[in-house]
Every structure is written in structure tokens, then in C-alpha cells.
Design a protein around this nucleic acid. Structure first.
Lengths: 240, 240
DNA sequence: CTAAGTTAGTTGCACAGTAGCACTAATTAA
DNA sequence: TTAATTAGTGCTACTGTGCAACTAACTTAG
């Protein structure tokens, strides 16, 4: 009976299965620069890419992880303490060549969070320069990071994603600042505000004072966890 | 030595690995309707969802598949005979609940092809109605299909994707027709043409005659395998 | 206390893309 | 010969944004 089962399974289920992991590309803005969270891989000879920097992530645990997204949330929470981030899947990469230990597939998520108070073990922020990431990362993580960055930059053109980089309450200038940091170009103040209000993205709260103490209206997102889509992109009319 | 290795691996590599598969959502336009390719699952009691309709796909073969994309291409070629389709990843779905045989993860691709001459074994076209797909598919394939459909519809607003549903040479009216079938709404002829030319999407070839025999300019894509992005979406100004 | 500087937020004009619609030209069907 | 059909063009109005000047509220230097 048991043998019969195993013979049947041989026919139907694959004997060899890929290694399956989840990697998370976590962005925040520090000091007017976009940053990615990286971790240092343990320095043991049994592990590939020992001591190198890598995206936070690791193998899926089929016992404890109910699904891919909760696996990603778990890893993100471990490193940042953040429990309710903006989290979106970028895609998956799989093949025989990307991990020396065998055929592997990884599921990549990207996340936007406000700067957390402190980071988990071995986690560091890497600022992203104007000319991309020059640091050499473990595995094909440079490719994954580049893909996440591209996704972020393109969605920033027509969504409210940068709002997730800020605390709950923020001024419109701060929000515009987030857009400008990610897109690495200045935006029109007037058109920016028109867009934000037309999309019904925010609602006002009270008053405060920003950096050098000018009074400014504080706003909150109307739908705290949801990305809002603008009808059009910021037009690159002049910049070409 | 061998034992030592296996002990080490126990610590580092996961004992249990998810089942890993690739599913492909293949679209074409037949008779002014968007269609998806489905396959009938074998009617054996050893297989889950026996006899039901499902997306074409299956387990990754770690021996023969170099990576996920070539696995998707292989499956697509098997069912349609098409070798150079437009193919794009939609995302991945994984969890303990989606396959009765255990924790599984699937990598979903979507593809656009012109109507092929004939289909592979057990493959059929399902027309997509105005109100989505009512057929109940195997596994969570309704979710995967819905996601692919949503991706297609949103990208059609600002890319040249529908051109991949046509043969190499086509008229602008035929191209506009593809857009209208997918978006399920009429587009402005004048604005459509302006957009297509402004994006430098096509180049003219010779003359032919279309359906009811009116003369029409034939065009080819300038870059046959590449999706072109329009600067803006078709604006829904009046349609709201 | 005053003047200069900084930043939030507004206003007005010009321009580009396209929605909406009318029009021409080439062909087929009656 | 006339009506119908469809490819392709031309014109106007409207909308969002680029651009730039402006006001108002506050801080800082002297």
C-alpha cells in the first residue's frame, strides 16, 4: 500500500523540487536619499556568498508559512519591526544557475516603510545613488533589486506610493519631497497639488510647523493601506 | 563525509520543499472576442481536479527547464505551436492551501498570440464575457486568470500589447479593433491614430483590402518583439 | 524693532493632447 | 446610378500641466 502510493506519486509528482525562497526589497527615504535594506550573510563556509550583502529573505518554511505574502511579512517584520507595511509582489526568478546549491526559485516583494527606529541583526541601509547600485550583492540580487527599483520608479509616476514612506501625518511639501527623491527630478508644486487633490488622496487634520518652522497644513491618507492611481503620469514634456 | 554533509545540509537547506509549477494564461482574439486557452485535466482518480478545466501548465522540470521563462515557453509551444509569443510574467502564487497534494507555488505568465491554426491535445478556447469568467476552473486558476486579465486590461491602456494578437501585417483599423475588444469600449479613431504615430509604433508596407474590400494601408511593427509604451493613457474623460 | 530671507500655498497664462464630430475619398452592393 | 460602408483627415473645445510670478506667514540677522 505504502509502496503503491510511492510508485503512483513518482509518476505524478516530481521527485526533485526547486529550493523556494522569498526575498524582500525594503525601501525607505533617509536624509533625502532612497535607501534599501540589506543584510550581511553569515560568514560560514557552508553557506554560499558568505559575508556578502544580500536582500533580506530566505527559504519558505512549509510548516509555519501559510503563503508567500505572510512569509514576506514575517521576514520584513523581523528586520524592521514594521507590521503593516505597503507590500507588493515584484515577480519571481527561478532557474538552475542562480544558486550553487541547486535549481531555485525566489519570490520577490517590495515594500515601502517610514524610517524605522532600529534595525534587526545584521541589517544595514544602502543609499541608492543617481547611477544605481554599484555594490555587488549575493546571488542574482542585483537583478532583483534593479527590477524592484524600476517597478517603484515607474509606479511613482502615476500612483500615491511615496506616501507610504512617510508617517501617518505629513505636509504636502513633504510628500512632494518623497516623489522628488525617488524620481530624482523636481516636480511642479502647483501641478503636484492639483493632482493630489483631484485624486482625493488626502484629508486635512490640524496645523504644525515643519523643519525650519513655517506653518503648514498636515494631511492624512484617506485610505491608509491602499495605493491610489492618478489618471495620468507626470508629463515629461520639457525634460526630453 | 557523506553523512557529515547531509547533517550540514539539514541545518541549512529546508527538508521539505514546495511543489513548483508554471501556469500560462494565453490570450487570443477570435470573432471579436477575447479568448483564453484552457486544458482539460486528465480524468484519473490520482489527480486532483480530474476532468476540470485548468490553465495550461505543470510542474517545473529541474532536469530539462533552465529557468522559469523557458519552462513557460515550452508549455506554450506544446499547446499552440507558437514559438515566439509575447510573454510576460504576471506574478506568483504560493501557499499550503492551493493544492491538495501539499504546499505549492506557481509562477504565472501571460501571453498574447494571433489565432493559431490548431491546438494541442485537450486544449480549448474559452471566450471571455463582459462580466468576466463564470466557468469554475481547477485549483485557484480563476484567481490567476483574473489577475492576468486585469494586468492585460490595464497595460492595454498605455502600451502596444494588442499588436501581438495580430499577424505581422495589419491595418490600423484592425489594431484599433483589438484594443476595443479587450477594453470593451470604442476608442476615438482620430486620437488612436495620432497616438500610434506619435509613439512611432509602426511602419507602412504595401496595400491590401480588408473584410468588405475597402483599400487600407498595411503596417508592421517597427520592433516586432517589444512592447511600446504610450506617454499617456486613453483618457476616460467623458466615459465617467 | 526692523529688514531680509524662507517656505506654504495661490493665481494666471500658454501650450499640448485628445475627445467629439464633421468631413472626404474609395470602394461595394443594390 | 445611387446608397451604403469604411479608411483616413481636419477642425474646435476642453482639460491638465509647465512655467513663473505672486501673497502670506513665519524666522533670523543685525
Amino acid at each position: 500500500m505504502k509502496q503503491e502510493n510511492s510508485i503512483q506519486n513518482k509518476k505524478i509528482l516530481p521527485e526533485a523540487r526547486p529550493l523556494t525562497s522569498v526575498d524582500v526589497v525594503i525601501f525607505t527615504v533617509l536624509d533625502d536619499r532612497l535607501n534599501v535594506l540589506l543584510v550581511i550573510r553569515p560568514n560560514t563556509t557552508e553557506e554560499p556568498f558568505a559575508g556578502m550583502q544580500a536582500l533580506p529573505g530566505g527559504f519558505v518554511n512549509v510548516e509555519s508559512d501559510a503563503d508567500l505574502e505572510s512569509c514576506a511579512l514575517r521576514k520584513l517584520h523581523q528586520k524592521t519591526g514594521v507590521k503593516t507595511p505597503y507590500l507588493e509582489q515584484v515577480g519571481s526568478w527561478g532557474g538552475k544557475a542562480r544558486d550553487p546549491r541547486g535549481w531555485s526559485a525566489t519570490h520577490v516583494y517590495f515594500s515601502l516603510i517610514p524610517p524605522p527606529d532600529r534595525l534587526g541583526e545584521g541589517a544595514v541601509w544602502l543609499p541608492i545613488g543617481e547611477h544605481g547600485i554599484k555594490t555587488r550583492l549575493a546571488f542574482d540580487h542585483n537583478v532583483l533589486l534593479e527590477a524592484a527599483l524600476q517597478r517603484l520608479r515607474s509606479k511613482v509616476e502615476y500612483t500615491s506610493l511615496p506616501a507610504f514612506l512617510l508617517p501617518d501625518e505629513f505636509t504636502l511639501s513633504e510628500l512632494q519631497q518623497m516623489y522628488e527623491v525617488i524620481l530624482e527630478r523636481p516636480l511642479e508644486k502647483s501641478a503636484f497639488r492639483t493632482r493630489v487633490f483631484a485624486a482625493d488622496l488626502v484629508k486635512p487634520v490640524n496645523k504644525i510647523r515643519t523643519g525650519n518652522n513655517r506653518p503648514a497644513q498636515l494631511y492624512r491618507l484617506k485610505h491608509p493601506r491602499k495605493a491610489v492611481f492618478f489618471p495620468r503620469t507626470f508629463s515629461p514634456r520639457k525634460s526630453d
